[in-house]
């Protein structure tokens, strides 16, 4: 970079800092000076209330963590399987492809909350032998069903983004279709879609709050309980902070992971 370029870079940083400070100060002042601020502050940002509800919300949030971790363990492989099934060539696999498409269309189209209510209340009500009665179980199943549909589309986009010449090279070595997909296409596809996969994982984390509808005391349900007792919404802020406390480090970790992989594979592509 030239000396002039460096000077412009420094000026850019200064402008960014000044404009950011100005904008956020203005925004903060507007909120704090609004007519209803004292009331909002007492209702949402009450320190005493925060201290009182935080341990319970944290305890309940642990359930959210378990829910999304267990669900994700099933979602990632199942969605990949679904995406691979959709990529199978030839007329023989037409029925399988149709099933995969129907599944994806259905579970992407139906609101998650409806799947959770239907399965969470409906499946145990069947009272069938061997069908679990636990609402938590069915909550996880619902999340897995819905997110597998979303995530399989992410994988599929990745698979289709790998140039056909890669498949040709693999097949020309005598690998069959599945070997070419598994050893050559999928590893490249997955690397490319890590950011959108993280996107869906964060979506899943937030949607674990929907399982509260079934009666499980997760973070959101806990805030409702707190609010019913105190008519104060500070516990919601508690829960929001907890969710963010998970997603932000996870996002930075994924960025680091992707950057490390790029460094290894591409010489001098990224600094």
């Amino acid at each position: 970079m030239s000396a002039r370029g460096r000077g412009e870079g420094r000026r850019g940083v200064v402008i960014a800092v000044v404009s950011t400070v100005v904008v956020f100060t203005a925004l903060g002042l507007a909120i704090v000076n609004s007519p209803g601020w004292p009331e909002v502050k007492a209702q949402f940002f009450n320190w005493d209330e925060f201290k009182a509800t935080f341990p319970d919300v944290l305890h309940a949030f642990w359930l959210n963590v378990k829910l999304f971790c267990i669900a994700e363990v099933f979602i990632l492989p199942l969605a990949l399987l679904l995406a691979i099934v959709r990529s199978l060539p030839g007329p023989v696999f037409f029925p399988l492809r149709i099933l995969a498409i129907a599944y994806t269309d259905f579970f992407r189209g139906v609101p998650t909350i409806l799947v959770i209510v239907t399965l969470g209340f409906g499946a145990p009500a069947l009272q069938l032998q061997g069908v679990p009665q636990s609402t938590l179980f069915w909550g996880i199943v619902s999340l897995v069903l819905v997110y597998t549909a979303y995530v399989s589309e992410v994988y599929r986009a990745g698979i289709e983004s790998v140039h056909p010449s890669q498949n040709a090279a693999a097949r020309s070595l005598g690998l069959n279709h599945l070997q070419a997909v598994w050893y050559v296409i999928v590893p490249q596809a997955v690397r490319r879609v890590i950011p959108p996969l993280l996107n869906d994982f964060i979506g899943l984390q937030k949607d674990t709050a929907l399982v509260g509808i079934l009666g499980a005391i997760e973070a959101f349900k806990q805030t409702q309980i707190d609010q019913a007792a105190s008519f104060n919404f500070t516990s919601s802020v508690c829960a929001a902070l907890l969710f963010v406390a998970i997603t932000i480090p996870l996002a930075r970790f994924t960025d680091w992971l992707v950057a490390r992989d790029r460094r290894r594979q591409f010489a001098g592509a990224t600094a």
């Binding site: 010449s165 890669q166 040709a168 090279a169 693999a170 020309s172 070595l173 005598g174 690998l175 070997q179 050893y183 050559v184 590893p187 490249q188 690397r191 594979q265």
Partner: peptide, 27 residues
């Protein structure tokens, strides 16, 4: 029948050794 392409089509996510051994190992 081996074929070599104009654009190399090496597997970018594999080392040189893994590129050369993939066919013998899997096929």
């Amino acid at each position: 029948i081996g074929i070599v392409f104009q654009a190399f089509n090496l597997f970018p996510h594999m080392t040189v050794l893994a590129n050369v051994t993939l066919g013998p190992r899997k096929a």
